[in-house]
């Protein structure tokens, strides 16, 4: 399947996540997502944006099966990771979640020390060597632009960190697992501009190695980061294109209205 309809400029991109005709409903409400078809390319930054309630968070939660936890959520359609179906009942969800990490809009460190937060996922994955754990911790904290701020207080409770630091801690916690895909849901909603710049800079680094999906906190952030972008409106994928095309020359009227602030 083509990655971006009508984009001849795209170099041969490797597909990472293929979504086909996805539909997600909560209870009896109209579907939170309907008819979603797109392919997230590997080692690129993909942006999902749009007004509140459009289904962006729902899409992220569907991709790593966290929506399984929501009572009454029903999912139809297909999602494939490296060509393998990940919605089926026989999928190893624990392993899937290690391959696809997520950072939530409201960062919630686990109620333990900074070090333990970083070790947590790796320990569960069976890592026992303290040296390996500490190395992974330092690497992840550095990648999340947090190492210098916390290296002297690793054994203090993570909840004592500032909001912005907590957000980067949650990013580091995911990075420590060396996932293949990193999803961030409004990662700078609680961040000051400096922390935001730090996180964005590390995302640009990370995409060399990881596939990044981000729901940005603003249109500006979306256009700064996007290699690929999808505009979501009330459960519909209105437009899906390379970031350049979508932000400079949107094809759909509704996308254009939203980008120029003439919405609603």
């Amino acid at each position: 399947m083509v990655i971006a309809p009508g984009s001849a400029s795209a170099p041969a991109l490797e597909p990472k996540i293929e979504i086909e005709n996805l539909r997600v409903c909560y209870g009896a409400e109209p579907p939170a997502l309907d008819g979603i078809t797109l392919t997230v390319p590997a080692r690129q930054i993909t942006v999902f944006f749009g007004p509140a309630g459009g289904g962006k968070s729902t899409l992220l939660r569907t991709i790593n099966r966290l929506n399984d936890l929501v009572d009454g959520a029903r999912t139809e359609g297909r999602v494939r990771l490296d060509g393998e179906d990940i919605l089926g009942p026989e999928v190893d969800i624990t392993r899937l979640r290690r391959r696809i990490g997520i950072v939530f809009a409201l960062p919630v460190p686990l109620p333990m020390s900074i070090r333990r937060n970083l070790w947590y996922g790796l320990e569960l994955a069976g890592e026992r060597s303290r040296r390996v754990l500490d190395e992974a911790m330092e690497k992840a904290l550095s990648a999340a632009a947090l190492w210098d701020e916390v290296k002297d207080r690793l054994d203090e409770p993570a909840i004592a960190l500032s909001g912005g630091q907590q957000q980067r801690l949650c990013l580091a916690r995911v990075l420590a697992l060396e996932p293949e895909v990193i999803m961030l849901d409004e990662p700078s909603s609680g961040l000051d501009p400096i922390s935001t710049a730090k996180v964005e800079a590390s995302l640009q680094e990370l995409k060399q190695q990881y596939t990044v999906i981000i729901v940005p906190s603003s249109v500006q952030q979306a256009s700064r980061l996007a290699d690929w972008a999808g505009f979501f409106l009330q459960g519909e994928l209105v437009e899906w294109a390379s970031g350049r095309e979508l932000f400079l020359a949107p094809k759909d009227r509704r996308t254009e209205d939203y980008l120029t602030g003439r919405f609603g």
Binding site: L69, F104, V108, P109, C170, L177
Partner: peptide, 27 residues
């Protein structure tokens, strides 16, 4: 115990049992 702790733990690849034992109970 806030469900955010539990979801955070599950999202890191913990099983339900591991989450209960290592996060919910200590909290």
């Amino acid at each position: 115990v806030p469900s955010a702790y539990k979801i955070g733990s599950l999202a890191l690849g913990a099983s339900r049992w591991q989450t209960l034992w290592r996060v919910t109970l200590p909290a």
